[in-house]
Write a protein that binds this DNA or RNA. Structure first.
Lengths: 183, 183
DNA sequence: ACCTGAACACCGTTCAAGT
DNA sequence: ACCTGAACACCGTTCAAGT
């Protein structure tokens, strides 16, 4: 890639990250192009679909999810405390960008999605936490990792769109934890 | 209301129901106006915001939810079977109109939403089912009705947007049921 | 090879003119 | 009191002309 093209691409992603964080993933693309100092055609050349730009912006979140999983696994307390710590971290991550939770969770398990690579990273972190608990015999039989990450993502999406706080999110995650773990 | 105005309003709602069912709640409003044989201004006079039109269209769903709750309460089997029957019915109802689940669940608990009256009806049906189970001592302590209807609505929203079938929805609802009911 | 920006398309929303 | 439809605004998307 030519140096000026690389520079333009980097600036677009940097600006998009700021705009998306503030206005959500549905923010107008022409404003991003304008703030990045490029024409709209240049943005479309690098990112033919909005989802491709979202994928690039989400690198920031994907970089953090595995250390979050590590922290949850190392959390003090029993399986329930560790699972809840993971759920809370994951919801916090997905609600860091307005609109991210619904898009990520909708694309979860869809290989053809432009953000499939990021979904794989999130799902992988979730699976690491669940595998740990499963090895301890703490998980109910027949609970599928993909369904769990969809359920937690669903809570994140509702929390995002309804602007719910921890006092509403916490009880929902507790229901999920009790449904995932043995009685 | 003048007779011709009433007739226009009825035709708009009737057409909108068909278009929304087929293309989802984000379908263009000008097509609805055209199919109803009115100008765009007439649609805006009767429904200043898209959510007001959605509210009218959803009357059809609100009319059915209470008989669904009755059916679930009368369902054969223990508390888990009845709760699952209710969850499945509710998800089926909310996914009957593409886009409905996310909008309804996002508005749940928001008195100021244009669809607040429909949310109240859905939440009331949910509360009737849960009250029955709670009276039997089947519910965990501290489970809030509003959080439950949000959780099931979240599953419906994900199922809607990811076009998931019963083989994916069923296991998610089982996790919720186990989280809501006593071990 | 890449960029610009004018141009087009689509659709939400308003409002002056009509009945 | 209500309706029409032209007009405007906004934004996604394309592409001919330029460097």
């Amino acid at each position: 890639m030519r140096a000026d093209a690389q520079r333009n691409r980097d600036r677009i992603v940097e600006v998009a990250r700021g705009v998306f964080k503030e206005k959500g993933y549905d923010a107008p693309l022409d404003e991003i192009a304008r703030l990045a100092g490029v024409g709209p055609g240049t943005l479309y050349r690098h990112f033919p679909a909005r989802e491709n730009l979202i994928d690039a912006v989400q690198q920031e979140l994907a970089d953090r999810v595995n250390s979050m999983a590590d922290k949850a696994i190392a959390h003090e307390g029993g399986p329930r405390e560790r699972l809840l710590a993971w759920f809370e971290q994951y919801v916090e991550l997905l609600t860091a960008h307005p609109g991210a939770a619904a898009r990520v969770t909708t694309a979860m398990g869809d290989e053809a999605s432009p953000i499939a690579s990021k979904c794989k990273i999130y799902a992988g972190a979730n699976t690491r936490v669940l595998a740990e608990l499963r090895a301890e015999g703490a998980m109910r039989d027949g609970v599928d990792d993909l369904q769990v990450v969809r359920l937690v993502g669903g809570v994140a999406a509702i929390a995002d769109q309804s602007r719910l706080g921890p006092e509403a999110i916490g009880p929902m995650l507790e229901v999920l934890a009790d449904g995932v773990l043995k009685g």
